[in-house]
Design a binder for these strands. Sequence first.
RNA 1: UCGCCUAUAGUGUAAUUGGCAACACGGCGCACUGAAAAUGCGUUAUUCUAGGUUCAAAUCCUAGUGGGCGAG
Length: 329
Amino acid sequence: MRQQNKNNKLIVILGPTASGKTGMSVKLAKKYNGEIISADSRQVYKGLNIGSGKITKKEMQSIPHYLLDVANPKNRFSAFKYQKLTQKAIKKIQEKNKLPFMVGGTGFYIQSVVDGIVLPEVKPNWKLRTKLEKKSNEELFLILQKLDPIRAQNIDQHNPRRLLRALEIIITTKKPVPTFTRHCEELTSDEAISTTGIATPSPIGSARNDGLNILQIGIKKNKQELAKLINKRLITRLKNNAMINEVKKLHKQGISWKRFEELGLEYKFVAQYLQNKITNKEMQQKIQIESLHFAKRQMTWFKRDKRIKWVNNYKQAEKLVKSFLKRGK
RNA sequence: UCGCCUAUAGUGUAAUUGGCAACACGGCGCACUGAAAAUGCGUUAUUCUAGGUUCAAAUCCUAGUGGGCGAG
């Protein structure tokens, strides 16, 4: 059942924030006749450009990009929508006989496509959520225990988002939450295919889904490098008040301060600065520190997926891509 | 030189006046079933040093050391 047309390949470029995914992906896409799908939960929104680090027209170098500007920032996007739109985009790219590159740092979005996880067909019900939000975590957990003891066993009982979502599924479907297998456990044995002669100790970084043959490349950076890169990037973004003006403009267009809090990082702290809640200096410090925290969380997520092949630079990535493309006939 | 005040985690502060050393931030680690830059979790201290009183000391006493204030 593992058919391997030349046409079923997907290359994923991932890594922590500021690690240089954008630059690397454009270079690879140019070289290997590719098109790019962004995997970034903030770049999907129209108008979040500078703060989200969205690629510019010029930087694209005429490589088509997908999943940018597909949502209104006033509304919340979702992993489900991401999965559906991306699967469509992949098909489209394949039909053009081009190589799809999925590039970004949102682990959950990437996983939704790479492993094709099945998300329950239950739309977010904000009325229900606001109602349930009034209850304490303990109360929510007790309800969940009664309705779905199995989900209750594994859930993080202090996490309101998880509890709310679980109850939302149960209440609308009147059934327990479907069980879900984690990506690494199931796939590692299946993926332990040996390489062609070349003495690479690590397992092949490919996974399969929907007949997709996937190579996941991660960009490795240590904390110090990352801190420097984040700082440098922040200075660029603040130049000529560019990022501050972007937030001002978005707020004028109706994005509430509360919404900026949710959008996080640069958007959260620039918004706080514009409300005079923090000083400019505090804003910069907070963005810096929170970005590093974020990078750490990203790495925690990525580290679990043993299929990811980690590289330090473009050359190594190119080598991986080359052998990956050869392998699949 | 003398007199008074002060010392608690990397930082800033608590501890019902003698009764399980707590909180925030930072550091380190982790999780993730339609919000994921979101949302959560764990961990991080010989209470400045040396003695003493007490069943029991961050807390009271004595000395030292560092810091602050006042007089000379």
